[in-house]
Amino acid sequence: MLYKIWLGNLKGLGHAKKRQLLQKAGSFEGVCRMLKEREEPDLPADIDLDTESAKRIEAECFNKGIFIKSFQEYGIPDNPELPVILYCRGEWRPFYESVGIVGTRRCTEYGKKITLETSEKLALQGITIISGMAKGVDGYAHTAAIRAGGYTVAVLGNGPDLCFPSEHKSLMDSILKTGLIISEYPPGFHGDRSTFPQRNRIIAAFSDRLLVVESGEKGGALITAEKARQYGKEVFAVPGRLDSAESEGTNRLIATKKALLWLPEYCGVHNTQPVFDFVKERHFSEMGSKLLFTLRKHNCRITTDDLAKELSVEAKDLMEAITELEINDMIETEGDMIWLL
C-alpha cells in the first residue's frame, strides 16, 4: 500500500506513463526499485524516490478509514487518463449498472424535481448513482438515491476526508454509511480551481450512462459530458426552456447531437416498454422494488417476518415478489433469511 500511495502522489509523471512503468515492472514496489536502479534513462532526474510522505499519508488513511484501490482493482484498467490509485471511503460494492447524474450547482426548481425523480427511480432498481457531491443537482442526485435506499458514489475534487461544500456534511455522512466516496487526491488535500473539473473525468469513466440535468452555457457538467462521449458512454441531457439560462448548456448538447434527449420513461418504472436493456432486466413489480428498498435499508439482510412487518403486509403476500427477485438473481434466500446478491 505504501508504494501505491507513493506512485499515486509521484509528481513529474503522467497517469499514462505511470501505467506503462507498472506494466513493465509488474508491481508498485517494482516501479520504485526500477527507478532507484535507473533502468529508465529518459525520465526526469529529480524524481522523488523517498517514501516518507507516502508513509504519513498511509498512516492518515489508516486512521480515517480510507482504503486504496489501484486501477486494476477499481475495474477500469484500460483508461490511461485515470489515476493509478483512488482513495476510497465507505462501502465498496461492485456496481453492475451505473448512471452519472450531473448538473449546475445553482439549479432551478425544475432541475431539482427532475433530478430527484430520476435518481430515485433509478436507485430503486438497483442502479448505482454517481455524481460529484457539489451543491445543486449533484447533491439532490445523491440525496434521492440514499433516500430510496440505493447505492451512490460521490467523486470528490478534494481529499476524501474533507467535506466541500460544508453544507453537505450530513450528506457526506450518509454517503459514507450506505455509499462510497472516491477521490484521486490524498486525505487533507483541499482542492483548487483545477481539481474539481479534473474529477469530472472520473465521474464520466465510472458511469455507464451520463445524464446532464441542467447546465449553463459553461459548466463543469459539460466537461463531464464531453469526457463521457470520449470514453464512449451514452450521454443524455434533460431538455429545458429556451429562455432558461440553466438549460442553455443541456439544450445545446441535444441540438449539437452530443447528447440524447432524456425522457422520463427512460427510468423504466412507470413504463411498459423500458428503453435500456438493463432497465428491462431490473424492472420488477412494485412489491419487488419495495422489497429491494427495505433490504438495502437493513444492510442487505433481513428475515421474511421483519420484512413483512416493515412493509405492513402478510408474509404470504411477499412470496411472489421474493420469488421474482430470486429468479432474477437479485436476492438469495435461506429459510427465512433473505439477502441481497
Binding site: R105, K112, Y140, P165, S166, L171
Partner: peptide, 15 residues
C-alpha cells in the same frame, strides 16, 4: 425561497 429567483440548495437552506 420559494420564489423562482431563489437558487439556494436545500442543504444551504437547512444550514
Amino acid at each position: 425561497y420559494p420564489g423562482p429567483k431563489c437558487r439556494c440548495s436545500d442543504y444551504e437552506i437547512v444550514k
